[in-house]
Nucleic acid binder design. Sequence first.
DNA 1: TATATCATCGACTCAATAGTCATTTTCACT
DNA 2: AGTGAAAATGACTATTGAGTCGATGATATA
Lengths: 295, 295
Amino acid sequence: MDKKKAILEAAVELIAEKGYTHTSMQQIADSVGISKGSLYSYFPSKEDLFVSIYEHYQQLVFERAFVVGLDHNLPPYERFAKQFQVQFEGVLEYKSYMRMHMRSESAQNSEKLKGLGHRMRGRLFSWMEQNLIDLYGEDIGPYKWDLMWMTQSIYTSYTGLMTSSEDEDQISPQELGKHIVRQVDILANDFLSGKSTPLLDEEMMRPFSVGMDQAGAFTSFEKREKAWEALYKSIHELNNSQYYIAITDRISEESRKSKPDEIVMKGLFHLLKEEEMLEAKAHILEQQILPETKH
Amino acid sequence: MDKKKAILEAAVELIAEKGYTHTSMQQIADSVGISKGSLYSYFPSKEDLFVSIYEHYQQLVFERAFVVGLDHNLPPYERFAKQFQVQFEGVLEYKSYMRMHMRSESAQNSEKLKGLGHRMRGRLFSWMEQNLIDLYGEDIGPYKWDLMWMTQSIYTSYTGLMTSSEDEDQISPQELGKHIVRQVDILANDFLSGKSTPLLDEEMMRPFSVGMDQAGAFTSFEKREKAWEALYKSIHELNNSQYYIAITDRISEESRKSKPDEIVMKGLFHLLKEEEMLEAKAHILEQQILPETKH
DNA sequence: TATATCATCGACTCAATAGTCATTTTCACT
DNA sequence: AGTGAAAATGACTATTGAGTCGATGATATA
C-alpha cells in the first residue's frame, strides 16, 4: 500500500510540472521505478490515478482546518485565523499538489472529478459559513454570501501566491491567517453597520451551495474526521475538559507535522485513555492516525 | 482577413467547451466550414492559433478599461468603478473567451503565451496602481501591493462567477463595479488609518510587477490605445475641452457596443475634426476604429 | 480561350501514448 | 531443490490527432 502512495507522489510531481496531458503513464512508472504494467495493477486508468490524487491530497489539506475547527477553546476570531494558518501550512507542505491543482486542466472530463470538486466547494462554503456565524451570529445571514465569496477569492489568490513562489517562507502562514481574518472582519463590520448592500444571494450561489449540509453545519466526510469529532465531543462532556483538550490539541499539532513523532503520539494517547470515558474514542482515533505498527 | 476572425471565434467556442487538448484542428476546421489544410494557411500551428486568440481577446477586453481611464472628467472613485464596469461588460460579451481563459490549461507550454500573460498581468497591476494613486495619493505606497493583490483576486473571482453562470444579467456590471471599488475603499481606509499592517511588498510581487512601466504609469501597448491617448491629450490642451470630451466619450461608449453604429461614429468624428487642433488625431483614431469602408 | 496565380482541399504520414497480455521473475512454502 | 501462485515486466496493439503536400479548383489577366 505504500507503493500506491509513492505512485501518487511521483505523479503529482510530474503533473504539477508538465501538466496532465503532457505526463505519460510511462513517465510516471519510470519515475517510481516500476513498469507501466505494474502501474496499471495499482490504478485501472490514468484518469483514475488522477482522481485518486485529488482524493488523497484534498482531504489531507482540508482535514487540518476541520480538526482545528473542533477546538472550541480558542475564541472564534483566533480559531478562524488558526484554521487558515494550518491550511496554508498544508499548502506549503503539499506545494506540488497545489501547483497541479491550480492548473485546473482536465477538471472537465471526469464526472467523478467534477463531483469531488463540487463536494469540496460545498465543504469550503459550509466551513466558512460556520465560522462567520461563530463570529457574528445569525445577523450575518444577509451578507454571508458576499463575505464567503470574498473570503474564498482572497484565500484562493493567496494560495496561488504561496504556490507560485519557489522559495519557502516568503509569507508566514500565521501572519497570513490573521491577515485574512482581519480583512474579512473589516468587510463584515461594514456590512453589519448597514453601510454596504450585499450583491449576492442564495439564488446566485446555488452552484456552490449544493452539497452543503442543509443545516449549514460544518460536517465531516471522512472516517478520520469523524473520529476527531467524536473524541472532542466526549471530552466536552467531562468536567475537567481543559486538561484533555490540551492533550488532544497537542496530538492535533503533532499529527500536522510532516514527520509526526510516533512515540510522543502514543504517549499522548495513553494519557487520554486513562480517562475511562475517552478510552474508546481515543482508541479509534489512534487507529486512524497512527500507521499500523507491526505487532 | 475576416476568415481569420471567424476561425478565432469558432476556436474559442470549442476550446471553451471542451478544452484545448480535446479540441482538434479538424473540429475547428469543420466548425468554420473549411478544410484542415486551409486552417493551416491562416495559422501555422495549433499553438499559434491559441496564442492569437489570447492576443485578440485580451486586448479587446482590457482596452475598454484603458479608454475609460483616459477620461479625467469623471472623479477618481467613479472612474475606477466605471473601469471595472466596462471590463465586466466585456467579460459578459466575450463569455466564451473568458471561460476558455479561466480553464488556464496549456498556459505552461508556450513561451509566447507565458510572455503574453506576464505582460497582461503587468498591465493589470499598473492599471490598479494608477487608480489607487489617483484615489489616495502617494500615501498609499506602502499598502499598494496588498490592495492591488486583494483587488485583483476579487476581480478575478467575480469574473469567474459571471462566466460560470449561463444566464445573462444575474449580476449587473455597473453594480459590481461600484461594489468592488467600495470594498477596496474600505480596506484602503483601514490601511491608511494605520490599523492594519501590510503583508506584501515589492520584493514578493516582483513576478507580477516586471513588465510594469518604471514610472508605474498606465501605459498603452497597442496602436489603437495610443490613438485614444493622443486624442484625449490633444483635447485637454484646448480651452473648451468639455465639449470635445463629451463627444469623445460618446464615441468610446459607441465603440464598446457589440454592433457600433458606424454612421453615428462617423458623425461624431466629423464634429471632432471641425477643430483644427484635433483633426489629425481624430483621423488616426477613426482609421483604427472604423472598419475600412470600401471607397 | 489560354495561362498564371492563389486559395482550398483532404488523404496521408508520423509520433505519441493509453491500455493489454503473454511471458518472466520473485518468493513463500514444502 | 521443487512447485505454484502472485507480482512485475515490456513488447505489442490500437487510436488519436498535428502537420504536410500534391492535386484540384477558382479568379484574374492577357
